[in-house]
Amino acid sequence: MGTRKTIAITGASAGIGAEIARVCAARGYDLILIARREAPLLALSAELEAGHNIRAHVVTADLGAPDAARILANAVAARGLQVDGLVNNAGFSKTTGFTTTDPAAQQEMIRVMLSVPVELARLWLPAMKQRGWGRIVNVASMAGFLQATGGDTLYGPIKSFMIKFSQGLWVESQGSGVHVSVVCPGYTYTEFHDVNGSREAVSAAYPKWMWLQADRVARDAWDAVEADKPRCIPGKRYQFLSVVSKLLPDSVGLKTAASHARKLKRV
Rank of each mutant, 00 (worst) to 15 (best):
R4N: 06
I7E: 00
I9S: 06
T10H: 04
S13P: 13
E19Y: 01
I20W: 06
I20R: 01
A21S: 06
A21R: 06
R22E: 09
D30A: 05
L31F: 04
L33H: 02
L42G: 07
L44N: 11
A46H: 13
E49K: 07
A50K: 00
I54V: 09
R55G: 09
H57Q: 14
V59D: 07
A68Y: 09
R70F: 04
R70T: 13
I71Q: 15
A73K: 08
N74G: 12
V83Q: 13
L86W: 14
N89L: 05
N89V: 06
A90F: 02
G91I: 11
G91P: 02
A104I: 01
R111C: 06
P117G: 11
L123I: 15
A127M: 10
V137A: 03
N138P: 00
M142P: 02
Q147S: 10
Q147C: 10
G150D: 03
G151L: 00
D152I: 13
D152F: 08
L154K: 00
F161L: 01
K164C: 07
K164D: 09
G168V: 03
L169T: 05
Q174L: 10
S176C: 00
S176M: 06
S176Q: 08
V182S: 04
V183W: 02
V183L: 03
P185M: 08
Y189P: 05
E191L: 05
E191H: 14
E191N: 05
E191C: 10
H193T: 13
G197D: 10
G197F: 11
V202A: 12
S203C: 11
K208D: 15
D220C: 10
W222L: 15
D223G: 15
A224P: 02
A224W: 06
E226K: 04
C232W: 10
I233G: 00
P234H: 04
V243C: 09
V244G: 01
V244H: 12
K246M: 11
S251C: 14
G253R: 07
T256N: 15
S259M: 13
H260V: 13
K263L: 09
L264D: 09
V267S: 12
